[in-house]
């Protein structure tokens, strides 16, 4: 890694500044055994992670495609029905398929609600297994049809000679799409806070929001903030203003911060990486956005001069 990159802060460590954890050997407990709904895979949209020492694979573009006439017909049919409903919604009903008055006056919106197995299809899970780690994560339905995220965190780094730290589990929503695979974005400009109802086990999580970018070098930009769970049998309402989110690229906090633009939100994700080996669980009831009138802050992180003078007391 280059020097300039090394000097940036890894944001997972920001948590370690919060709790100066003591190294304690905790009894490794068995996780609750339940079927893994999906095989952990990379949820990033773009390229696969290539492990150190693995040769690069070159594939011709047409090798990646699977040509099949039957499938093509089915896909076309599906997309045309989608297109039809889109046109109908926009012209007959109103913007985003809702009446105009509702669209204009809404104060809060439930974006993801976990009720039933259909709602889990919009999410992908991933863990450090893809870089050679040993963490496990699975996403299942809870008793009351809520989302139930559980697994085991393991911080043993992979033995490839390069990777030094490991231990994360993450879940990420899928990119919503219009017909013919055009990207669809969440537009949250009329809201200023994220609202979640969760029930955790006392572990801190990180919320990642990905926005649409123009340049390809921004493809790994994510906005992060932390979510702390109380633990216990009660549901907990978490409200996080969007002004608190900070920009990081590939896990390194950037110097040049700017507020999160809410007009084109692609995905939201949750990451656990608190360096504590053992089982974890998180239940999510719903994820919504709300307009909090009491919150007026635009951006929580002030700017300083690009090249600040360091005043040394030596001379």
């Amino acid at each position: 890694m280059s020097l300039t990159k090394m000097t940036r802060l890894p944001l997972a460590r920001l948590l370690s500044s919060i709790h100066l954890q003591q190294q304690q050997l905790l009894p490794l407990l068995h996780p609750s055994i339940s079927p893994i709904t999906s095989i952990p895979r990379r949820c990033a949209l773009h390229s696969e992670y290539r492990r150190p020492g693995k040769p690069r694979e070159y594939k011709r573009p047409w090798d990646l495609r699977n040509f099949d006439f039957k499938k093509a017909v089915a896909v076309l049919k599906e997309h045309f029905t989608l297109l039809q409903s889109e046109v109908h919604d926009r012209i007959v009903v109103g913007p985003e398929g809702r009446p105009l008055i509702e669209h204009m006056l809404e104060q809060n919106r439930v974006v993801w609600e976990f009720r039933g197995p259909e709602s889990l299809k919009e999410w992908t899970v991933s863990s450090d297994r893809e870089i050679g780690g040993q963490s496990e994560i699975s996403l299942t339905l809870g008793k009351h049809n809520t989302c139930f995220l559980h697994g085991t965190l393991n911080t043993t780094p992979p033995r490839d000679g390069e990777t030094r730290y490991s231990g994360y589990c993450t879940v990420r929503s899928k990119q919503p799409k219009y017909s013919f695979d055009r990207k669809k974005h969440h537009d949250w400009t009329s809201f200023n806070s994220l609202h979640l109802r969760v029930r955790g086990d006392g572990r801190p999580w990180m919320i990642n929001i990905a926005t649409e970018n123009y340049y390809t070098h921004q493809k790994d930009d994510l906005y992060h903030y932390f979510m702390f769970t109380r633990g216990g049998p009660y549901w907990q309402d978490v409200k996080i203003p969007f002004s608190k989110f900070f920009l990081a690229q590939r896990g390194r906090v950037q110097d040049d911060q700017h507020p999160l633009w809410l007009d084109k939100i692609n995905t939201i994700g949750f990451t656990l990486g608190d360096n504590a080996d053992g089982p974890f669980q998180l239940e999510i009831d719903f994820i919504g956005v709300t307009n909090d009138y009491a919150h007026t802050e635009e951006f929580a992180y002030e700017h300083y001069k690009k090249n600040p003078e360091v005043k040394s007391k030596l001379s």
Binding site: Q21, Q22, Q24, L29, Q281
Partner: peptide, 13 residues
């Protein structure tokens, strides 16, 4: 028992 994490320690209730 249900787990509760306090920093790096796991207790059950």
């Amino acid at each position: 028992p249900f787990p509760l994490w306090l920093k790096k320690k796991c207790v059950h209730y």
